[in-house]
Amino acid sequence: MLSAETKSQIEGLIQKNRVVLFMKGNKHFPQCGFSAQVVQILKEVGVPFDGVNVLQDAALRDGIKEFTQWPTIPQLYVDGQFVGGCDIVKDLYAQGELQKLLGAEAEDVPAPVIHVHERAAKAFRDADDGSGDLLRLEVSSDFKYELYFGPKKAGDFEVKAGGLTILVDRASAKRANGITIEWVETADGGAFRIDNPAEPPSVKPLSVTELKAWLDRGDKLEIFDVRGDDERARAKIDAAKKFDESAEAYVRTLPKSTTIVMQCHHGGRSRRAAERLVAEGFTRVYNLEGGIDAWSVKVDPKVARY
């Protein structure tokens, strides 16, 4: 039950400030992915807002759900009115409606240009269930990608690429210009690969099955094993060179756009080495997720596990 005390506390909070976000954690350290997404959006819109951490007050945490008749956190209030949770805030932002509501000027974003390779286009056509839904590409502010079929929404760009129509919301659009979507074969069937020139370089995860497919196809790449000789003696991937001092010197002679895969036992040590290479300016650095152990389990059982 919502107590009179909690009710008046909430009413006070949403009247005190124009934009109030009930969230988990505070706006500098959100403690939940959904709260973090809304904080990020509000920061991008650039309006001041009050973040209320419901984790510090159990009565408030339950009370706000009852007050709003909304079972989830975060909850955004503007001018004392409930606007929505994470999904709705994302949608409103994507349509430019949130900016209007908050009195911020919606940015004028040009329609993005997207390239879709033929194999990828075919995979999309095959996946189309004929319901009339269109392919949608979302690029979050931290450059995570989502591709799925869905209905057209207000404000969407309809981008033509590879014989397809791709829906891109206005928030994604400014991060989607120049994207290339390819289809890559993997042992699990296949997967889309997105190359985005707008994305700041970071270590990309690579599955062992994908690496196997790259090697089988003869792709040009460098694989380095950051483990010591004792571990390499037990198990190794033939194509992986030991990442010793001379290998590091060799890497520094390579073009920064060289595809580099870092590998270790389980993927932890190699990630740190990969991050170092990114910091040095390399733009296509992959960490082999699961390391030699995953390679042994999924690709080559002849390689010993240890």
Binding site: Q69, P71, F82, G84, G85, I88
Partner: peptide, 27 residues
């Protein structure tokens, strides 16, 4: 609108989202 529509669905599953050991932690 979206809030009204989602509220209908959330209302229907609210009992599955209540408490720290709820079966539905997040939608």
């Amino acid at each position: 609108n979206m809030v009204q529509s989602q509220r209908l669905v959330y209302g229907a599953i609210a009992h599955l989202m209540k408490g720290d050991r709820a079966p539905v932690h997040a939608v």
